[in-house]
Write a protein that binds this DNA or RNA. Structure first.
Length: 876
RNA sequence: GGGCGCAUAGCUCAGUUGGUUAGAGCACUUCGUUUACACCGAAGGGGUCCAGGGUUCGAAUCCUUGUGCGCCCACCA
């Protein structure tokens, strides 16, 4: 079914068609792969993009990497599942919808009421979800759409409720009064990592405070003070520690305790601080250590409470101004630093200043020892997973970051005061509390209005998508859960380790007492040309879809994969995509050439046994291909995606196109080899650039490349080896011959080279190739082979094992021989050094295993040397 | 304050346990264009591998100090 191929590859005309073909084939679903029982599983769960999101380059990079791995494993015969889904992103989504409603209807969510508001959210999501999924398909992602999940769909709702109930029943989830980061505008708590710090100018007030002078930026919190703290070693204040003092305040006199605590910095301010346990995290900790009372004075609206006398009802900012002016009048302010700079905490969503508040919230205890985890806590178990290498981080340095963060982890506040999300499955009636999957039957129960932190449901993502809890019966996994969990790899951005990765690990251990994945691969951020984060507001974003329209999705994918390494940020530019588009077109034209050249062989099934190596060029290209297959496999297994693509590129362009195809033009009869090579490189390239490879494949095959089998090397190895037997390295012979000739000191330069080359066993083989070389003259300015004179023009191309000799270019014979001579001396020196080391008894005694390594090194050096000479000659 | 990363050609970056003359793409210069490909070919220029010190026969690579940049965590009362 050889189809005519256009002169230039046109991605737009092919990509959608190919994607439909893939999707229709059903092979995205591992159940349709017709694999033997013994086939191993390979599972990646797609990190669910925010449902309101549009595809950006970060997504595109994630998809490129994951699809690369998934397609590779599928070709390798794994039962490969890549499971798609989207995230409801509670706060973000609610904000988007709130903004829309405000713009369109001039109403806020309270005007609409909870039920009506949620209806609006859902109808909005109906539109956006289709968008992001469509965009993912454009990138060629081979996701199993039959298993599509959403963090807030019915199945996941059930999973979340079961999880919550199980944790509640075991006391892991508890309700408590804690100081939380409170956003007075969003009316919600924020997790520690949702708080952003900004450097801001503020006034630092020095207050007269009984016998102390204290510095503070928030004089209004004086109304909630219950203590003064000093450093334990501070001699200035030693006399006061443990005493109770009476302090004059704007609302009259009040009493505070003086405590000594290491949290106080002697050298900052006056070395003494006022303690407001209800509205400061540090103070709260001091209060806990010293059993101090806590007095709440600011409410959820950020206003002063009724216990603040005449200041009640003022916002904390207003109260500050009022109190400062009153204190000034009373002479309680010593002085003010006007230009003090401090870090202030802001809501990551709306930028409002955070108010630390004591509040009733739901928490997950990370320290509670659990029977189901063998007496260990979630934190211990999650740390163990990394320490014992049950979960491997790539690159490994992120393991440290993970562990550091886990070590300092406090109980996780999971309740959020927003409407969109998983509502907490707890009902109240009078003083009773009920936690269950459904509302109790009898009257009068009212559900907790709060919803769960979005990471609660995404933390369950690996197993909730695989059918937990239905697929977890009496502690045994069944169905998809048994088949695909733990998953093999989580691929995500490094910035999300703390938010997501850590939660997934804890949740998975709690639910099924196993890790959610074996490896965590962290990719970097995609930055713009200048190294800045891409963002809509800056207008420096590159739209991957726009790029895919212009250059093809393959080019976008390849440009994201090449030149980037795990965990490092990548700068990205349009020129890079263009370069990859050019390569893809090159591959396209290579294919066109081969398909035309070998058109008579296309229908035949080419077995390796039928391949015939006739010339050294044949052997060279096939042994290069053999190397390439091995290296590609090795690189992909080690997550060196960029390197793998580079080596593929080198083979395809520099070896195959620039050399072998040129040879094939002159020397006919390479049909089988060429078609064999084409089939192989299409397979090797397919995970990187699936569309174009599938199109080419489809032009001379009836089946899909996507489910072909990965190249098998053993037979190829045999074939290449057979040809090797009578072709020992000519480079070795060159070296030996030169050495002999020189030591005899009688051969003049010109003869040396001739003697070497023509004296070789493969005279015939070389002679044959010389014809090729001569006919290659078209691409060389002038060519004279093996003639007497000052210059030899031509080139030598050699492989480490073989005899490939073509001559191109020009070199000065004397200079060249001098150089070879020098190289040889260097080689001798190196080997002597190694030998000296080997003969040193003490050295040997000290490190016997090193000696073994050295033996190998010696070999390595020799090999490197060979390769280097090869390269030098090749370069001529 | 604690931690992590980066510094290699004009630009963007590779360089896997130390190994001989440090690579690629883009850009640049010259020449070419007889059909696989101008989204092309050939040739070429361009690097005290941030600086100082150390280990080694040998360092871009390992150790140390410093400088510059980026990120993360904590926190500034």
């Amino acid at each position: 079914m050889n189809k005519e191929l256009d002169k230039v590859y046109k991605p737009l005309e092919n990509e959608d068609k190919i994607y439909n073909k893939w999707e229709k084939s059903g092979f995205f679903n591992p159940d349709n792969l017709n694999l033997p029982e013994s086939a191993k599983n390979y599972t990646i769960i797609l990190p669910p993009p925010n449902i309101t999101a549009k595809l950006h380059l970060g997504h595109a990079a994630m998809l490129a990497i994951e699809d690369l791995l998934v397609r590779y494993k599928r070709l390798k015969g794994f039962r490969t599942l890549w499971l798609p889904g989207t995230d409801h992103a509670a706060i973000a989504t609610q904000n988007v919808v709130e903004k829309r409603i405000w713009q369109e209807q001039g109403k806020n969510r309270h005007d609409l009421g909870r039920e009506k508001f949620l209806e609006e959210v859902w109808s909005f999501l109906g539109i956006t979800q289709a968008t992001i999924l469509q965009q993912i398909k454009k990138m060629g992602a081979s996701l199993d759409w039959s298993r599509l999940a959403f963090t807030l769909d019915e199945k996941r709702q059930k999973a979340v409720r079961v999880m919550f109930k199980n944790m509640y029943d075991e006391g892991v989830i508890y309700r408590g009064e804690r100081l939380v980061n409170w956003c007075p505008r969003c009316h919600s708590t924020l997790a520690d990592d949702e708080v952003e710090y900004k450097e801001e100018k503020a006034k630092l007030y020095w207050l007269k405070y009984g016998p102390f002078v204290l510095a503070t930026t928030r004089p209004e919190t004086k109304l909630g003070d219950t203590a003064v703290a000093v450093h334990p070693g501070d001699e200035r204040y030693k006399q006061y520690v443990g005493k109770e003092l009476e302090i004059e305040g704007v609302l009259g006199k009040f009493k505070v305790k003086v405590v000594a605590d290491y949290a106080v910095d002697k050298d900052f301010g006056s070395g003494a601080i006022k303690v407001t346990p209800a509205h400061s995290f540090v103070d709260d900790e001091i209060a806990r250590r010293h059993n101090l009372a806590s007095k709440k004075i600011i409410n959820e609206d950020g206003k002063m409470m009724s216990n603040c006398g005449k200041y009640a009802g003022l916002s904390s900012r207003e109260a500050r101004a009022a109190i400062v002016s009153d204190m000034e009048e009373m002479g309680l302010i010593d002085h003010v630093d006007e230009n003090y700079v401090h870090n202030s905490a802001h809501c990551y969503r709306c930028g409002t200043v955070i108010e630390p508040l004591p509040s009733k919230q739901w928490f997950i205890s990370v320290d509670k020892k659990l029977d189901r985890l063998g007496g260990k806590s979630l934190k211990e178990k999650a740390m163990e997973a990394a320490q014992d290498k049950i979960i491997e981080f790539i690159p490994s340095r992120f393991e440290k970051r993970y562990l550091d963060w886990m070590k300092n982890l406090h109980d996780w506040c999971i309740s959020r005061q927003i409407w969109f999300g998983h509502q907490i499955p707890v009902w109240y009636k009078d003083n009773e509390i009920y936690c269950g999957l459904e509302k109790p039957k009898d009257e009068g129960w009212k559900q907790d209005p709060d919803t769960l932190d979005t990471w609660f449901s995404s933390g369950m993502w690996t197993f909730s998508t695989l059918g937990w809890p239905d697929n977890f019966v009496n502690g045994e996994k069944v169905g998809d859960l048994a088949k695909f969990h733990p998953t093999q790899l989580l691929e995500t951005g490094y910035e999300i380790i703390t938010l997501w990765v850590s939660r997934m690990i804890m949740m998975s251990y709690f639910a099924i007492n196993e890790p959610p994945f074996e490896q965590v691969y962290l990719h970097g951020m995609v930055l713009d040309k200048k190294g800045k984060k891409m963002s809509k507001s800056k207008g420096n974003g590159i739209d991957p879809l726009e790029m895919a329209e212009t250059f093809g999705a393959d080019a976008v994918r390849l440009s994201l994969l090449m030149g980037s390494t795990p965990g490092n940020d990548t700068r990205f530019s349009e020129e890079k995509i263009e370069a990859k588009r050019n390569f893809i077109n090159k591959l396209w034209n290579i294919s066109r050439f081969i398909l035309d050249y070998s058109k008579d062989e296309l229908e035949k099934n080419i077995e390796i046994q039928n391949l015939e190596i006739k010339t050294s060029a044949d052997k060279w290209i096939l042994s290069s291909l053999l190397d390439l297959i091995n290296k590609t496999e090795e690189n992909l297994e080690n997550n060196n995606f960029s390197l793998a693509a580079e080596e593929l590129n080198d083979f395809t362009w520099n070896k195959l196109a620039d050399w072998y195809l040129e040879v094939a033009k002159i020397e006919k009869g390479k049909e089988k080899i060429l078609i064999f090579i084409l089939r192989n490189i299409l397979k090797l390239w397919h995970p990187f650039i699936p569309f174009v490879t599938e199109v080419v494949w489809g032009s001379f095959n009836d089946n899909l490349l996507m489910v072909e089998t990965w190249p098998e090397v053993n037979e190829l190895k045999e074939l290449v080896k057979k040809f090797n037997d009578n072709n020992f390295s000519i480079i070795q012979n060159i070296i030996i011959a030169i050495r002999n000739a020189r030591s005899e000191n009688k051969v003049e330069p010109a003869k040396k080279l001739e003697a070497v080359i023509f004296g070789h066993d493969n005279k015939e083989c070389i002679a044959k190739n010389i014809d090729v070389i001569k006919s290659l003259k078209t691409s060389i300015s002038s060519l004279t082979v093996y003639e007497e004179g000052d210059k030899i023009e031509g080139s030598i191309m050699a492989t480490s094992q073989g005899v490939e000799i073509f001559l191109i270019g020009a070199f000065d014979r004397d200079q060249e021989l001098q150089r070879l001579h020098k190289e040889e001396e260097n080689l001798d020196k190196l080997i002597k050094i190694q030998e000296r080391k080997l003969n040193n008894d003490e050295f040997v005694k000290k490190a016997p295993e090193t000696v073994v390594a050295l033996e190998r090194d010696k070999l390595e050096i020799y090999k490197t040397e060979q390769a280097r000479i090869k390269k030098a000659i090749n370069k001529l």
